[in-house]
Simulated scan of single mutants.
Amino acid sequence: MSSTYHIGLLLLRLGFSAMMLTHGIPKLINLVQGNLDFGDPIGNGNTLSLVLTVIGEAICPLLIIIGYKTRIAAIPTIITMGVAAFIVHAADPIATKEKALLYLIAFIVIALTGAGKHSVDRR
């Protein structure tokens, strides 16, 4: 594989995961502070839904940034974005669910391609 391919994978991982953290870190802060006011889109309860979302939007993107178990780490984020796009925003227009769909597609690509050579897993 060419070096530009691996740079492309690195940029994909860093860019989308860093942007995802802007959604996940506020939720992580709420969880740590005990503010468990969160939606329950799939019937797991508010607290469990928040914990699962924090895993998908904060913990796993951090793992993806460093390239540790990238393909596995992308799975919770894919599930989280699938729930956001197809359950939480199911009745909304495409413009509302567009961000979740873009993240979904990006993390599916990350899961399919892996981290590339610029990652903890490759060291």
Rank of each mutant, 00 (worst) to 15 (best):
T22R: 08
V109M: 14
K27P: 01
F16D: 04
I7F: 12
L102D: 07
A18G: 12
L52N: 12
N35D: 15
S3E: 15
T96S: 13
I7G: 03
R123P: 00
D40G: 05
G56L: 02
P93I: 13
I75D: 01
T80L: 07
V83Y: 02
K117G: 01
I64S: 04
L52W: 06
M1E: 06
F38W: 13
L63N: 01
M20F: 04
K27C: 03
T22G: 03
S119V: 01
F107D: 05
P26F: 07
L28F: 14
V88W: 07
I94N: 09
G116D: 00
I25A: 04
H89V: 02
S17T: 06
L63E: 04
A106K: 09
H89T: 05
Y5F: 13
K117I: 13
D40W: 07
P26I: 07
L112W: 05
G43C: 10
T77I: 04
L28A: 15
L52P: 03
L28Q: 05
I64Q: 05
D121I: 06
L52R: 10
T47V: 13
K97S: 15
A100N: 09
N35C: 01
L101Y: 11
K99F: 14
S3I: 14
I42N: 09
S17Y: 04
L102W: 14
Y5M: 10
G24C: 04
I87Y: 09
F86I: 07
H23K: 03
A18N: 02
V109D: 03
I110M: 02
A74S: 15
Y5K: 14
S119H: 05
T70W: 08
S49T: 12
L48R: 05
R13I: 00
S2Y: 01
E98S: 13
S119L: 03
N30Y: 00
G24F: 04
A106V: 06
P41A: 11
H23I: 00
M19E: 08
H89W: 02
V51Y: 04
D92A: 15
L12K: 06
A74E: 07
F107C: 08
I94S: 11
L112H: 01
D37C: 00
L12W: 05
D92H: 06
E98M: 09
T47Q: 13
R122V: 00
T47E: 15
P76L: 11
N46M: 10
V88C: 11
F107S: 04
L104Y: 08
L101D: 12
A111K: 03
I64T: 05
G8H: 02
D92G: 01
D37S: 14
L50T: 02
G15E: 12
A90Q: 10
V109W: 07
G82Q: 06
R13V: 01
G45S: 10
Y5P: 00
L104Q: 12
P26T: 07
F38N: 07
S3M: 14
F86V: 05
L52C: 13
G34M: 06
H6P: 00
I105V: 15
V54Y: 03
T113G: 00
A85F: 03
A100M: 10
S17L: 06
V32A: 15
R71W: 01
S49G: 13
L48C: 03
I29M: 10
